[in-house]
Amino acid sequence: MIRNLLNDKPTKLFVIFTSFFVANALIAECIGGKLFSLEQVFGLTPHKFSLFGESGLSYTLTAGVLLWPLEFVMTDIVNEYFGPKAVRRISYIAVALISYAFIMFLVAMSVPADSWWLGSKAADGIPNMQTAFTSIFGQGMWIILGSLTAFLVSQIVDVTVFHRIKKRTGDKHVWLRATGSTVVSQLVDSFIVLFIAFKLGNNWSWQRVLAICMVNYSYKFVLAVALTPLIYLLEHQIERYLGHDVAKKMKAAAMGKEHPYEDPITND
C-alpha cells in the first residue's frame, strides 16, 4: 500500500507542492524583519514621493515579499490540479506550522544564554548575541498576528476568485484566472497585514496605512503579472510528468466535474 502511494505521481506532486508551500511561507516569515530598498537593487537612487497626503515614501519593502509571490503561484497550481479543498488544507498546515515555529522561537529566546556565546561575535561588531538573536527572531506579536491573518484570508480569497473565473472560462485563459486571483488576493493581503500590525498595533493613521499598502501592492501587482509565464511553464512540466489524460482528469475533479482522478489505493 505504501509503495503504491509513494509511486503515485499525483500524490508525489501534492507532497512536493505542500512541502515547498510550507517551507517558502516559513522562510518568508523569518526573513520578513529585514527591510530593503527596491530602487537600490537596480542601482537607482531612492526617490521620495507622496501618496494620500503621506510624504517621504519610497519603495522600501520587507524581504518577505521576495518569496510571497511564489506562494500565490503555488496556490494557483494546486488549485488547478487539486482544487480549493487542497489549497485550504495546505494553507491551514502552513499557518499551524508557522505558529509552532514562532512559539519555538519564543522558547529559544527565553532560555538562558551561555556567557561565552553572548560575546562570541564582539570582534564582528555584535557585542551581545542574545540581543541580536532576539532582534532577528522576536518579531512583534501584532506583526505575527497580522501576517498570519492576512496570509490565511488572502489564500481563501485567491481560491474563490480563481474558481469563479475558471467556471466562466473553462480551461482557457490560464493567465486570467491565475493573474486575476493573485492581484485581488495580494491587495487583501497587503491591507490586512498593515491594518492589524500597524493600525491596530501601532495606531498608524488611515492615510499612512493606505499609502504604504498601495506602495507594497504596486510591487506585488507588477510581480504577479511578471510571474504569469511561470504558471504556463509549471503547467507544461506537470502535464508532461503526469500525462495528458491524468492531468485532464485531475483538473476536472478539481472543478467538481465528472470523471475525477481515481486514487490508486482507494479507487475513489
Rank of each mutant, 00 (worst) to 15 (best):
R3F: 15
D8V: 04
T11P: 07
T11E: 15
K12A: 13
F17P: 07
F21V: 10
V22L: 06
N24I: 09
A25M: 09
E29C: 08
C30K: 11
G32H: 01
F42T: 09
G43C: 10
H47W: 10
K48F: 13
F49S: 01
L51S: 04
F52A: 01
G53I: 00
E54I: 01
P69E: 09
P69Q: 04
L70D: 01
E71Y: 08
E71I: 15
D76G: 11
N79L: 14
N79S: 15
R89D: 13
I90S: 01
I93D: 02
A94E: 13
A94I: 09
A96F: 07
I98N: 04
S99R: 02
M104G: 03
S110Q: 08
P112K: 04
D114S: 11
D114G: 04
W116L: 11
L118P: 01
K121N: 13
A122C: 03
A123R: 10
D124G: 07
G125C: 11
N128S: 05
M129R: 06
Q130N: 11
Q130V: 08
I136Q: 05
Q139E: 10
G140P: 01
L145F: 10
L148F: 03
V153P: 12
D158Q: 12
D158L: 06
V159R: 13
K166F: 06
G170F: 09
H173T: 12
V174Y: 06
L176V: 00
L176H: 00
T179K: 07
G180L: 05
V183G: 09
V183F: 04
V183L: 09
V184E: 00
S185L: 05
Q186L: 15
Q186C: 02
V188C: 10
I192K: 05
I196S: 02
G201K: 04
N202G: 07
S205G: 12
M214K: 00
V215P: 06
F221C: 14
L223W: 08
L223T: 13
A226W: 10
L227Y: 07
L227W: 02
P229D: 06
I231M: 14
E235W: 05
G243H: 05
H244D: 13
H244S: 15
V246P: 00
A247V: 00
A247S: 03
K249L: 11
K251C: 01
A252G: 06
A253W: 00
K257I: 03
H259K: 04
H259N: 14
P260Y: 04
P260L: 08
P264I: 04
I265D: 14
I265Y: 11
T266A: 12
